[in-house]
Design a binder for these strands. Structure first.
Lengths: 335, 335
DNA sequence: TTGTACGCGTTATCAT
DNA sequence: ATGATAACGCGTACAA
């Protein structure tokens, strides 16, 4: 089914059919009716490939995410998907499993597809072949969750937020706060959050306990439990993200600690699920869906109004400390 | 950047460039080297729109999911995404928010895009305009999670699985088991699971307690807590999915019940997260990523080998009862 | 082994 | 207000 057949069925030229779809007011009411009737009858749907080839735009946005197994990214993707639907765009997502070569492969595919823009979460903006390739084209892109002075980004202030959560625990009376993180050098976020941790500890004049670094998230529970055998002074665990915090709660439980009585645990991300857990999760809430929405809006504004898309366009969204049941003042045993 | 420029730079014809990419062995080693060099130097990436227009295939698969806010679907999508990457396909996902018109709109977009196949999760295969439209074309599709004798599906036996989990609780000694579900008529899965519940209750010769139906998942906690005020006999809650079970655990907690001592709670789906919760979640595990993988494999087999794609091709994957900490024998108070 | 030329379905320019 | 037609970039007969 193509525009030719519709034109024939409606007894008009292909040009008129095209106009009926793209500029309905540039065609008389009667012919418009004829064309629309024919199109509906034949279940005509314009061919996007042909349109893209001709107009040089695909109304498609590429999306690169590390994984779909972390709700942070799926909440963000949901925001992107909703906004895209509203604005008449389609999205084409790829997951990179935090690896540089999958990032690169995905960008190549997206370029071939002729996406009009790309939203991506990379491991480290300072060292990303994918980002370099993208920059060498003139396809607009926005980094989500990353934060770097050389690129347009949409994120929150990870460092500040993390020092706030340390301050929150210190104010509750915690003297021994340990951080649990994925591989610190795997992403700029992890690094920024660790810096925030150190800063928060210094500001509260507390001892800096060794970082509990968990290489693989899948066996994080055992890894954290093991670390807790060694680290006996900590009364609070601040985790680099909510998924890690959930596992830390379980690890604490396995070590015989009650959360929050014997051990406070906090997360970072504010995933929706955290509020419905028992205990509910104290966390720094990021507006995940909004990070997605704003990233796409930035791209669309650039595409439609040629709005500038430099590092200066970066958006720093507000985070929010979300106190909940997984944190409490430290338990003082009366012996 | 196009094939013309590359041809010019390499001093060959466009046909040769095209062949170098699509049939590398149909071109001499020397010219191949020349072309590849030129292509690399110019950062040439074939234009997918033009290729699609010409070959009438896009190597793109459409994906329709109710929402990305339920890990069941994102685990499935992750499976689809990985398989697609392995097989050289791209995916184009849409969310439908469980509404029929968004389902339909998405299918129209996908048709326009020229996707070669569609994987979808619909509310009810028996009554889905989107599915009807899809059938009227000859684009192959696979339903995921749905189960219907008239369509190719990849799912588990919801009814059987649900009656198993009821039997499991009955064997533990529970006499009063209530079911918590989203709107039963919103999806065929919900309906099938409820049927399994009723069957399980009958087989165990237990009283059929009224269904606790929760219209909106977002305020499920309050809704379940309210229902628990009325339903004082139940010692076990079987929930239609894991997200609901997590909320039921919280509702039970708010009502002063300890899980599992005073109240056993079970889910359905086996989302990865459930294993790391405290208490860990008793559930029926579905192979979510595999449901995605198999759906895509089915489509690809059809595309490449013209394998048949009727209802007969449907795949019923095995589910698995996953006993965990959220279920236990009922507590017998000694008064 | 390599090159020429047509057509995929659409939009946009130019006539009418 | 409508129609004829060129061009978008590619793959593939067919020719050389």
């Amino acid at each position: 089914m193509n525009i030719q057949k519709v034109a024939q069925a409606a007894g008009v030229s292909v040009a008129t059919v095209s106009r009926t779809f793209n500029f309905p007011d540039k065609v008389s009411a009667t012919t418009r009716a004829k064309v629309e009737a024919a199109a509906a009858r034949l279940q005509y749907v314009p061919n996007a490939s042909a349109r893209s080839l001709r107009t040089q735009n695909t109304r498609t946005i590429g999306v690169l995410l590390p994984t779909l197994n972390n709700p942070v990214f799926t909440e963000c993707l949901q925001g992107i998907a909703e906004t895209a639907a509203e604005r008449g765009f389609s999205i084409m997502p790829f997951t990179t499993a935090y690896t540089l070569d999958q990032e690169l492969e995905a960008v190549k595919k997206l370029l071939g597809f002729g996406v009009e823009g790309v939203i991506l979460v990379v491991s480290d903006p300072k060292h990303s072949p994918a980002l370099e390739l993208l920059q060498s084209t003139n396809i607009p892109y926005v980094l989500a969750y990353n934060w770097d002075p050389d690129h347009p980004c949409v994120s929150v202030n990870n460092q500040l937020a993390f020092s706030e959560i340390v301050a929150f625990l210190a104010d509750l009376g915690h003297q021994h706060i340990a951080m649990v993180s994925g591989q610190r050098h795997a992403s700029d976020r992890a690094q920024q959050r660790y810096e925030g941790f150190v800063k928060g500890i210094e500001q509260a004049r507390l001892p800096l306990l060794p970082l509990i670094e968990v290489p693989f998230i899948d066996n994080a529970v055992e890894a954290i439990a093991q670390a807790l055998q060694k680290e006996r002074t900590a009364t609070a665990l601040v985790c680099s993200n909510d998924l890690m915090a959930i596992r830390a709660i379980r690890a604490a439980h396995l070590c015989g600690y009650q959360v929050p009585r014997d051990m406070s645990v906090t997360g970072f991300d504010g995933v929706r699920l955290g509020q419905d857990l028992t205990p509910s999760l104290t966390s720094i809430a990021q507006p995940n869906a909004d990070i997605g929405r704003h990233s796409l809006e930035l791209l669309i504004q650039h595409l439609t109004q040629r709005a500038p898309l430099h590092a200066k366009a970066s958006l720093l969204l507000t985070h929010q400390l979300q106190p909940a049941e997984s944190s409490a003042p430290p338990f003082i045993p009366h012996d």
